[in-house]
Design a protein around this nucleic acid. Structure first.
Length: 785
DNA sequence: CCTAGCCATGCTGAT
DNA sequence: CATGGCTAGG
């Protein structure tokens, strides 16, 4: 081990004030036993973790390999490691175990694979792989996928797994659930047979090992980690919590968890705020510390954020405050529609960058990925460099998945899902008929598809051409597997592309799509090279499994580059980040807070509120919040009202405005939907006297704060129905126009909600008793009224 | 057996 | 709006 400084001062301490709950003293304090830190947004919690670790090693002489630090993203883990390398030196830092729950458990599982009944080369199945497995299961169990949609079945299963339950623990609720239990069993059986795990399994396998008192590997893991630190503790689920407790089960039980219940935004993914709130009950001796000073944001932003979070129920009481100056007010901007909104955002960004702000200090947030497209178009048109985090992910592109599937089959030939994906890419004239036979053969013999190829060829049930194709495919794989033994992963990838004929297939016609595909594939090979370089410099061995694991566990945010480009992302992805200037777009009721059309998927306004709080607290000096009166989203035009979260911003922290387009409209006409929203905002009476505020106590069951003044709506209908100011039909006789009434021979008279113009216009019409239908204009007649 | 093109259907958030 | 499943035609 490298020589270490004895004095923490030598580590380069952060400049925190000498306060009671001061992060610096907190970092240095040697607390044996559990410690819970409630760390408000921008209070420097990551710094606390970093310095606690540094102090443990440097001052208290804790061997680094005994320390486990859990972060929320791989990127955060990388940054933490980087900072620790700076403080402690590379050779010490490399013995620290830092990573996400998934990365840490995957690493442990690679090592203790036997205890989980896996081979070392196991692969991790992502969402679409899981769906492919489920499709096969449904077919096998002869279940109708209309009645049992694979996604829904999987979601039930994931819910179980997130609570630590297996198929045997599944308690069917009613008649419909019985098949789900059988799906669960079959699904797990298929994964095991394929030597594969899904995201939940990674944690569950390790949990089973570590909670088993008789397990040797379990004992080994429990004894190893003596100092456990967990960041973003408010977003752990039950399984992760059990892991944490098991990790910290050996003396001195030095467990330090850091979190902020106000920033818990992953309940839908199994996270449970009650864990952090109930921590002091589970650990009666726990010390509890609160960090309430915000070092990040201007006073206006902090006060605005407080306004947003204050109405939240069941908060751990705490007061966020800052010494920072007031700064600019939060710009709340009314926009006409999403294009207008995007234009506004881009123009402000242009101003900022022209004044010398680096584009990487600017971020644009939205609630859903679907909102990114319009923003992206305008950014591109205006030549603002940007990067989108998430959305249609690189690793989900067809050609990228194809190459990865080849690599995964080479690493683990039992992975049926991957084999099916590539067996006919490029075309080897192996169609559904042959593949069905192969699946049947494998099911009958209880082996993998790969192992059944020979058997099928011997069975005589296929013709010689097909047999030849099958065998040459198997030979290809064998050749690649052989090559894999003494080739670096990147070279293997090149070999796959060349030998499989994949490149040839793309070369066959030189369409722009194929050019893009080839580019994506070289980018993938580039990412393998990056991996190899990193692994080598960290003194690790490069392995195909290692790369594949990293790819599957990489999160969107891990891809955030340190380049001078504006970052665009969902608010969820923004968690843990900070920027000088932030735009929060689409701040409209029913979009943010998001409201699902299906009332059975009862979303949680409380969580949306915390999400808004996270969004606001990302900004250091400038913050704009925009909303549009009208928005085309999910293929429909919706009319929106400013979000309740806008209403919650203290007035003193806000400056209101509107886009020029809206200003112009406003001066020429005072009627209509957008105008009225805007008029209320401008008049200053609203959104601060937004109807929902007055109706706050009398709202419906699912959405307590719904506007009272709005017209009645059908169940599941989302947006306020009103007369838009634009009359698309031009108003002349006989034309169908938005807001007008039309007649349909089956559904009767209905109200026109929106029109998709085109060669064959499609009209959305709300019929009483039938809800909103999309119907070709040709089938409609204008009705009086 | 493959391909292209049509229709339909869902569509929050993500390791 | 985008993806996927299905059908018809090559």
């Amino acid at each position: 081990m490298a020589p270490l400084p004895d004095d923490p001062e030598e580590l380069g301490t952060p400049s925190f004030p000498d306060d009671l709950n001061d992060p610096q003293r907190l970092a240095a304090a040697h607390v044996d036993g559990p410690l819970l830190i409630f760390a408000g947004a921008g209070s420097g919690k990551t710094r606390v973790i970093v310095y606690r670790i540094a102090n443990l090693v440097a001052v208290h002489r804790v061997p680094p390999y005994k320390i486990l630090a859990v972060t929320f993203t791989n990127k955060a883990a990388g940054e933490m490691k980087h900072r620790l390398e700076g403080l402690l030196g590379d050779s010490v830092a490399k013995d620290l175990y830092v990573g996400t729950f998934h990365a840490i458990c995957a690493r442990l599982l690679r090592r203790y694979h036997d205890a989980a009944g896996l081979e070392r080369s196991f692969v991790i199945y992502d969402d679409s792989d899981q769906r492919a497995v489920m499709n096969r299961v449904l077919k096998e169990l002869e279940l109708d996928e209309k009645r049992f949609p694979p996604r829904q079945v999987l979601s039930r299963i994931h819910k179980q797994k997130q609570e630590g339950k297996g198929p045997a623990d599944f308690q069917p609720e009613g008649f419909f659930d019985e098949p789900i239990k059988r799906c669960f069993e079959a699904y797990q059986r298929h994964l095991q047979a394929a030597n594969a795990v899904d995201f939940d399994d990674i944690l569950l396998h390790v949990l089973r090992i570590i909670e088993d008192p008789a397990s040797m590997p379990g004992e080994e893991i429990r004894r190893r980690f003596r100092y456990v630190l967990v960041d973003e503790f408010q977003d752990v689920n039950q399984v992760q919590y059990r892991l944490v407790r098991a990790f910290a089960s050996s003396p001195p039980h030095n467990l330090c968890v850091v979190g902020d219940d106000d920033q818990s935004i992953y309940r839908w993914r199994g996270a449970d705020v009650r864990i952090v709130r109930g921590f002091r009950k589970d650990f009666p001796g726990a010390q509890i510390v609160k960090l309430e000073q915000n070092y990040r944001s201007s006073n206006n932003i902090v006060k605005g954020a407080l306004g947003v979070i204050k109405p939240a129920k069941d908060r751990e009481p705490k007061e966020l405050w800052t010494d920072n100056r007031d700064g600019e007010q939060i710009g709340v901007i009314a926009c006409d529609n999403e294009h207008d909104e995007a234009a506004f955002v881009v123009e402000r960004i242009r101003e900022l960058t022209e004044r010398g702000l680096s584009a990487k200090e600017v971020a644009v947030f939205y609630r859903t990925h679907a909102q990114s497209r319009v923003l992206e178009e305008v950014m591109r048109a205006e030549r603002i460099p940007y990067q989108i985090i998430g959305g249609v992910r690189f690793f989900e592109r067809a050609e990228v998945k194809d190459l990865l599937s080849y690599l995964r089959v080479v690493a683990n030939p039992r992975s049926d899902v991957d084999l099916l994906r590539i067996i006919n890419k490029p075309s080897r004239k192996l169609g559904d008929t042959t593949l069905d036979k192969l699946v049947q053969m494998a099911d009958g013999r209880n082996t993998s598809l790969y192992e059944s190829i020979q058997a099928l060829c011997d069975s005589g049930s296929i013709n010689s051409g097909t047999r030849h194709s099958l065998l040459s495919f198997r030979d290809l794989l064998q050749k690649l597997m052989k090559a894999a033994r003494d080739t670096r992963p990147s070279q293997l990838a090149e070999l796959v592309l060349a030998e499989s004929g994949y490149t040839k297939m793309l070369d066959a016609d030189d369409s722009t799509e194929n050019e893009a595909r080839k580019q994506n594939l070289s980018e993938l090979v580039g990412s393998i090279l990056d991996y190899e370089e990193e692994a080598l410099s960290a003194g690790e061995e490069t392995s195909l499994s290692g790369y594949l694991e990293r790819v599957t566990l990489s999160s969107d945010i891990d891809a955030l580059e340190d380049a001078p480009r504006v970052a665009m992302m969902t608010v969820h992805a923004a968690k843990g980040l900070e920027f000088d200037s932030v735009f929060i777009t689409g701040m409209e009721e029913d979009l943010f807070p998001f409201r699902n059309a299906d009332p059975s998927r009862n979303e949680d306004v409380e969580e949306e509120r915390r999400l808004a709080y996270v969004a606001v607290t990302r900004a250091r000096t400038r913050l704009w919040i925009t909303y549009a009166g009208r928005r085309m989203i999910f293929g429909q035009t919706r009319f929106g009202l400013p979000s309740r979260f806008i209403t919650d911003l203290p007035r003193s922290t806000v400056r209101q405005g509107a886009t020029p387009a809206l200003e112009r409209q406003q001066s020429t006409r005072e009627t209509g939907n957008v105008g009225s929203v805007y008029a209320r905002v401008r008049a200053g009476g609203s959104p601060w006297s937004h109807p929902q505020e007055r109706a706050a106590s009398s709202g419906g069951a699912t959405y307590p704060g719904r506007p009272k003044a709005e017209p009645e709506r059908a169940p599941g209908e989302r947006y306020v129905e009103r007369e838009p100011e634009l009359d698309q039909g031009g108003g002349e006789d006989g034309a169908i126009h938005v807001g007008g009434r039309v007649q349909h021979k089956t559904f009767g008279v209905g109200l026109v909600m929106s029109i998709d113009n085109g060669a064959d216009p499609i009209v959305s019409v709300k019929f009483s008793g039938y809800g909103v239908k999309r119907i070709k204009a040709a089938f409609l007649q204008r009705a009086g009224g």
